Amino acid sequence: MNACAPPPVRLERSQGDAHVALALARGAVRLADLAQRGSAKAFLPRIAGPVPEVVFLNTSGGLTGGDRLDYRLTLGEGCRAVATTQTAERAYAAGEGAARVGVVHEVGRGGWLDWLPQETILYEGAALDRRTEVDLAPEAGCLIVESVVLGRAAMGETVRRLAFRDRRSIRRAGRPVLVDPLCFDDAALAAGRGPAVLGGARAFATLALVGQGAEDALGAARAVLDEPGVEAAASAFDGKLVLRMLAPDGWPLRRQVARVLAALRGRDLPRVWQV
């Protein structure tokens, strides 16, 4: 070992976690707990009213190898809420290791959660491992969406190197209702025009509606799957509705997602979406 060699550089990594708990009190949904640390923040621009909004934010400006980010929302019995992210999340090139994101939401009996994060943009060389878990009590339900964009077409960005693991799971009373894993790497990008992967698209999204009678919304969802340039399909059974969408870029995908959400929710998107 060379005694004159400089010591290895230890790069600073971002760490953050934010937890919000809401509960019914005196006939209204109220803030029961708020804890935040590091780069993860949460704010409630619309706490008043029957369906409050919770907005999560990563103040580090993006993710790279070794970063860790955790969001958590707990809804008490009978609570309804909308949760989202303040802007698109960005995963940049990772020199070593993967960025890890954990999302855990719990919905009490008879409650409902709309988890509507804005898209995740993956840049060349990004490494991201994300797990999203929604635990539903009996008679609870949820609507969740995840959108991913591989680089920005307007900036001429092309993604050829990538390590992306994304796992979504929804449980009711501890039993799996929907498990949706995804693993995307360099080999998948190289085969990106195959029928089993993206078919040449660079933006994709999954939407899931889980709750009693969710399958009844299939017709309304399919009726708006006509955004130009977007391929989409929907299926429904046994209290679940699942949609898959592919697009050549993030903007048409965003419009399609917004239209589907409007059809299923019957109310405006969170203000931070700005569609």
Rank of each mutant, 00 (worst) to 15 (best):
G65Y: 04
R37E: 09
R68Y: 03
E53H: 13
N58G: 01
S39A: 14
D17P: 00
R26V: 09
A42M: 08
E89P: 03
Q15S: 11
R10C: 04
L44W: 10
L34A: 12
T85H: 05
R37C: 10
L34V: 15
R72P: 01
L57I: 05
Y71I: 00
G62H: 00
A25G: 14
S39Q: 13
V51Q: 08
R68H: 10
G38P: 06
H19V: 14
L11W: 05
V55R: 08
S60A: 10
A5L: 13
A88C: 09
V55E: 09
V55N: 05
D67Y: 00
L63S: 00
V54S: 06
V29L: 04
G61E: 00
G66I: 02
A32H: 12
A28L: 08
A23W: 05
E77D: 14
F43T: 11
P52K: 08
L31A: 06
G65V: 01
F43C: 12
A32Q: 10
L34P: 01
T87E: 15
V20Y: 11
A18I: 07
Q86N: 03
A42G: 13
R68Q: 08
G61P: 01
G38H: 07
V51W: 05
A81T: 10
R46Y: 11
P45F: 01
V9H: 07
K41C: 10
I47Y: 04
Q36K: 06
L11Q: 14
S60K: 02
A42K: 09
P8H: 04
A28G: 06
G61W: 00
R72T: 13
T59Y: 04
A23V: 13
F43W: 15
R46N: 09
L24V: 07
N58H: 03
Q36W: 12
V9N: 01
G61C: 06
A88R: 06
H19N: 09
T84N: 08
A28N: 12
A48D: 14
A42I: 06
P52L: 08
A25R: 15
A83C: 06
Q86K: 03
Q15P: 00
G49W: 06
P52D: 10
L11M: 08
G78Y: 05
E12F: 14
A83R: 03
I47K: 13
P8T: 08
P50V: 10
S14K: 06
A21F: 13
D70E: 14
P52W: 01
L44N: 09
L73M: 01
C79M: 02
A23T: 15
L57D: 07
A40R: 01
L44R: 05
P7E: 13
P7K: 07
A5Q: 13
